[in-house]
């Protein structure tokens, strides 16, 4: 079972990779928020395929676009 994001991880990541000094209390809050977002994406990512790329989204929006014709 993977571990949850911890305040220590957030503080170390901030200081070593982002040049950010984060206090212990704020690191606690950020750990909860990062865990929430990261988990949501990781769970949803089961849908992904190796051929995916971000530009597919705009292509689909255009393809699914409809001129105004519904309604009578």
């Amino acid at each position: 079972m993977p571990g949850k994001v911890t305040a220590e991880l957030v503080r170390d990541h901030g200081s070593q990779l982002q040049r950010l000094d984060i206090g212990p209390r704020r690191a606690d809050e950020l750990a909860i928020e990062v865990e929430r977002l990261n988990s949501a994406v990781t769970d949803a990512a089961q849908r992904l395929d190796f051929n995916d790329e971000p530009a597919k989204f705009s292509a689909l929006l255009l393809a699914a676009g409809q001129p105004a014709k519904a309604g009578k």
Partner: peptide, 15 residues
Amino acid sequence: HIPATTYLEALNLRA
């Protein structure tokens, strides 16, 4: 603190 891979997965999931 969101990994780049997570960000890109979120973008790829949009379609």
